[in-house]
Design a protein around this nucleic acid. Structure first.
Length: 272
DNA sequence: CACCATGTTAGCGG
DNA sequence: GCCGCTAACATGGT
C-alpha cells in the first residue's frame, strides 16, 4: 500500500516530531530486519541527535549529528507509531527509539520491509537508492524526460509505472488512479502511447500525487494519537478497490483484472 | 485448512 | 537484453 503520498506523510510527521531530539535508548527485537548486527545499530544510534528526514521513492532516510544514515522501507505492512511518555504500546515492534524527552518511536511489522544502517550521509553512495529511477515529483522529472523514457519500452504501462528502477515511488494504487485520470488502459504498451496521452499521464500522475500528499495519503496506520492527517485521500480514489461499482464519470461498472500479476482496476469506457 | 493482499527480487522461458 | 509469468519472502484476514 504505501506509495509516495503515504511515505511522504510519514516523513513530514517525523520532521515535525523528532528532528533535534536525542536518542536515549534503542531496542531491537528482530535482527533479520537489519543489514548489520544489533550491537552495531545500538552503538551508532544511542546518544545521537536526529538532524534530517529525507525520502527517495518509498524509502525514508533518517540522518543524525554523525556520518550515518538509517534507511527504512515499509514494504507491505510496515508502519511507525510515535507515542508520548504517558501512552502505552505493547504490540510487536522490531525497533524502538526512545528520546531523552521521553517520546518513543516504534517501527512495527518490519518483516518483509527492512531497516538499514549505512555509514555515509551521501545518498548517491547508497546502493538501495542508486537503483531507483527518478522521483515523479522531482523538478528534473519533466514531461519531455518522461516521454523519452517511455519510447523504447515495450512493457505494459501499468507494470512499468510500478517498476522502481523506472520511476521511484508509484505502486498499485496510484498507477491505477493515474491511468484512469489519463484515460489510458493499464495493459497498453508504453512505446505505443501517443504524445498527447503521455503528456496527460504525466500531469495527472503528478497532480494526484500532490493532492494525495496534501490530504495525508490513502488508508494507513495513524502516526500518533493526535494524527488527524493520515488517510485523508482515501475517499478520493476513483477506481482502486471499486470493482463492479459505477464509474464516477460514466456509470459503467469498474473492471478488475490481473495485469503483470497485480490487481488492476479501470473503466473500459473512460480508458482506451 | 487454503488462499489472497501488499512491494520487491530472483529465476525461468519466450 | 527485454518481457511476462511465477514463486518466495512474513504475516494477518477471510
Amino acid at each position: 500500500m504505501p506509495e509516495i503520498p503515504e511515505i511522504e506523510t510519514v516523513r513530514r510527521q517525523l520532521e515535525a516530531t523528532i528532528v533535534n531530539k536525542q536518542i536515549k535508548l534503542v531496542e531491537i527485537t528482530r535482527e533479520k530486519t537489519f543489514n548489520v548486527p544489533i550491537e552495531e545499530v545500538l552503538h551508532h544510534l544511542e546518544k545521537t541527535t536526529v538532524t534530517r528526514i529525507l525520502r527517495r521513492g518509498k524509502i525514508i532516510i533518517l540522518q543524525f549529528n554523525q556520518p550515518i544514515s538509517l534507511l527504512f522501507h515499509f514494504m507491505l505492512e510496515g508502519y511507525l507509531k510515535y507515542l508520548n511518555p504517558t501512552e502505552e504500546f505493547e504490540k510487536n515492534y522490531q525497533l524502538m527509539l526512545e528520546f531523552t524527552t521521553g517520546e518513543k518511536l516504534y517501527f512495527c511489522k518490519m518483516y518483509l520491509g527492512y531497516i538499514h544502517l549505512e555509514m555515509t550521509t551521501d545518498l548517491d553512495q547508497i546502493t538501495e537508492i542508486q537503483e531507483l529511477g527518478p522521483d515523479p515529483l522531482d523538478i528534473d522529472f519533466t514531461a519531455a524526460k518522461f516521454q523519452q523514457m517511455l519510447t523504447r519500452r515495450r512493457k505494459m504501462i501499468k507494470p512499468l509505472l510500478m517498476d522502481q528502477d523506472f520511476i521511484a515511488g508509484i505502486g498499485n494504487t496510484y498507477s491505477n488512479e493515474g491511468l484512469f485520470l489519463a484515460g489510458i488502459l493499464p495493459d497498453r504498451k508504453a512505446s505505443e502511447l501517443q504524445t498527447g496521452e503521455i503528456q496527460k499521464l504525466y500531469s495527472k500522475l503528478r497532480q494526484i500525487l500532490r493532492e494525495s500528499i496534501n490530504l495525508g495519503g490513502v488508508r494507513d496506520t495513524a502516526y500518533s494519537s493526535s494524527d488527524q492527517l493520515t488517510g485523508g485521500f482515501t475517499p478520493e480514489l476513483k477506481v482502486s478497490y471499486r470493482e463492479g461499482e459505477p464509474c464516477y464519470v460514466c456509470g459503467t461498472p469498474i473492471s478488475y483484472a490481473k495485469i503483470g500479476g497485480r490487481n488492476a482496476f479501470y473503466c473500459t469506457v473512460c480508458q482506451h
